[in-house]
């Protein structure tokens, strides 16, 4: 039965890997914020599977809500597109 838990954990971690890669190579900062929010949601599910309900409560509010809002404020006050 533990295999099912571990498989779900593996899927969330690989989703996190893919979306963190997309967030870092993206040139549009707003899209990158969206990708990093998806990464945060995947990791919140991973924390839940790892039996850490305390961290889920803090992490969902901080990483998905407050953090995205803070970055959107930063992008709105500075530049949106990255020149490589």
């Amino acid at each position: 039965m533990i295999e099912i838990h571990l498989l779900m954990l593996l899927i969330t971690v690989i989703i996190g890997l893919i979306f963190s890669y997309l967030a870092i190579i993206e040139k549009d900062s707003l899209k990158a914020i969206g990708f990093s929010a998806v990464h945060a949601i995947a990791y919140a599910i991973a924390f839940y599977i790892l039996m850490a309900p305390d961290i889920v409560l803090a992490y969902v509010a901080v990483a998905v809500g407050i953090y995205s809002a803070l970055l959107i404020f930063v992008v709105s006050k500075t530049e949106r597109y990255e020149v490589v």
Partner: peptide, 8 residues
Amino acid sequence: QGGSALAV
């Protein structure tokens, strides 16, 4: 946890 939920 409660504080970061309150800030939303």
